[in-house]
Write a protein that binds this DNA or RNA. Structure first.
Lengths: 238, 238
DNA sequence: TCAATAGGGTGTCAATTTAACTCTAAATAT
DNA sequence: ATATTTAGAGTTAAATTGACACCCTATTGA
C-alpha cells in the first residue's frame, strides 16, 4: 500500500467518527498596581455577546494546540516568547451553547511593562483583578480557578514569579508579587533568606529608588545558575 | 432572536473554522507481581497496524471528554468507578500520520484484582512493565512519561496509592507499591510512622498471612477521615 | 518438640529545616 | 537638622526529617 492509498484507508476508518471544533482559551496573568490580574474581554459575537470571557479562538487545521495558543496571545498582545503552559481541556457537551466545542486552556505570564496597552485596549481587552472576575461565560470561571491553583503550585517549585516582573527587579518587588499570588504576607527576612539561598539571582550594582528613599538593589534572574540548580535536583520553595 | 435562529447564527459563525477528530488515550496503571505496569495493545488497524499503543478511541458527539475516557476504560476492563484523571492534550499536526487528530490523555488506577483478565486479553491488551514499554506509537511514550510524573506527584499529596491495592491491604503491601512507584526503597519504620500519623487508615482485626508466617494486619482506607484531613488543610507526604 | 526461618512491627536521637521575632541604615522631604 | 519611610540583616526555639537495630510471631521441617 503506498502513501496515498494509506491515507485514503485511514480517512475511511476515521470517517466513522465525529470531528469537533477545538478552541484555545488563555488565562493571561499580569502584575499591575501590586495586584495579580488577568486579561478579559467583552464578547462582540454570539453566543453570549456582551458578556465577559477569556481570550480565545479556534484551532486551525495547520497549527498545533501550542501554536494556536501562541497566535491568540500574539494577536492580542503583540508579544512573543511569553511564558505559556497548557492547563486543562474542557469537553462537556453543552459547555458552549452555540455548538459542540472542546476548549484547551492555556495560562500565560506577561511582563506588563513590555505591553502596548493601547494595542490591547483596541482589541477590547481589559485587566481584571483576580477574584473580581467571577462573571465569565461558559466554564471560564473554572478555567481561571484552575489556572490560579496551577500558578500557585508552580510558583513554589519553579521561579515562575520572575516571568511577571521586569528583567531587573528588587527583592521587595518580588515579595509583593508573591504576596499577591498567594494572598498572604511573607516575613521579609525569611523570604530574602530562602530566595538568596537558591543562588539564582544576580545582584546588580544599581538601586531602584522608585519605591523608597533608601533604594533597593536590582537583581536579575540567572537562567544558567537556575539550570544548574535544577540538574542538581534542588527544589525551589518559598 | 429565538433559540433556533440563535443556533443557526452560531453555526454560521463557527463554520468558518475547522473541526478536528478528538481522541482519548488512557494510561491504565495496575500493580501486579509487585511491579507497576500499564495496559497496552497491539493495533489491529491502520495507521501503525501491528505496533503497540495505549488504549484509546475517538470522542463521540454525544459524550464529554470524561465520558469518552470512562467508556474506553469500561469497554476494555468492564470496570466502573475507577480512579481516572485527565492528564494533557496532544495537538501536534502530524502526531497521527493518518489524519489530524488531537488526543486528550487520561490516566487510570486499577485495582487489578477486580479485573477479568480474560476479558482484557480478548481485547488484545496486555500488561507491560513501566520502563519496558518504550516502543509505543506516535507520542504515546510522552504520554506514559507524563502520567508517571503526575502519578508520582499526586501519590505524595493524596493517598492515591490505595487506588492500586485491594480495599483491604497491609502496610508492607502499601510500602512495596510506593517503592514500585518511586523506584526507591523507603525505611519501613518511617513509612509506617508517617502513614499512620495521617490517621486515614482503619485497622482491622484480621491478619493477612499470604506473605509471611506471622501475618500482617489488614487496613482499610477511611475516606471520611481523609476528607476531614483535607478540610483541615493538611498535606500527605511520604 | 524444638530450632530455624522469614517477614512484621516498634522507638530514639541527631541533624536539618522552618517560623517567629526587632532593630539599624540610608536617603529624602520638610 | 530632624522626621519619615522602606531596605536589609541574624538568632533562637520548635518542628520535622532521616538514620538506625532489635525483638516478635507463626510456620515449617528436622
Amino acid at each position: 500500500m503506498n502513501s496515498t492509498e494509506q491515507k485514503k484507508t485511514n480517512q475511511k476508518y476515521y470517517s466513522k467518527f465525529t470531528r469537533i471544533y477545538v478552541a484555545v482559551d488563555c488565562i493571561i496573568f499580569g502584575f499591575l498596581n501590586n495586584e495579580l490580574k488577568i486579561l478579559i474581554l467583552t464578547r462582540d459575537f454570539e453566543p453570549a455577546m456582551g458578556k465577559s470571557s477569556l481570550i480565545g479562538g479556534f484551532v486551525r487545521k495547520d497549527e498545533s494546540l501550542d501554536d494556536a495558543a501562541e497566535r491568540i496571545l500574539y494577536d492580542l498582545t503583540g508579544l512573543e516568547n511569553v511564558f505559556l503552559e497548557q492547563l486543562y481541556s474542557y469537553g462537556k457537551i453543552e459547555r458552549d451553547p452555540g455548538e459542540r466545542v472542546i476548549s484547551v486552556s492555556y495560562y500565560a505570564l506577561l511582563k506588563v511593562q513590555d505591553l502596548d496597552h493601547d494595542h490591547v485596549e483596541k482589541h477590547g481587552a481589559r485587566w481584571c483583578n483576580i477574584g473580581e472576575c467571577n462573571e465569565l461565560v461558559f466554564d471560564h470561571n473554572d478555567m481561571v480557578e484552575r489556572a490560579l491553583t496551577r500558578l500557585r503550585r508552580r510558583a513554589k517549585n519553579q521561579p515562575l514569579g520572575f516571568e511577571l516582573l521586569p528583567r531587573k527587579f528588587t527583592i521587595p518587588q518580588l515579595q509583593v508579587l508573591y504576596e499577591a499570588i498567594y494572598q498572604k504576607k511573607f516575613d521579609n527576612r525569611n523570604f530574602r533568606k530562602k530566595l538568596l539561598a537558591m543562588n539564582v539571582l544576580e545582584k546588580l550594582e544599581i538601586k531602584d529608588k522608585s519605591t523608597s528613599k533608601k533604594g533597593a538593589y536590582l537583581y536579575r534572574f540567572d537562567k544558567k545558575r537556575y539550570n544548574r540548580f535544577l540538574e542538581e535536583g534542588f527544589l525551589f520553595d518559598l
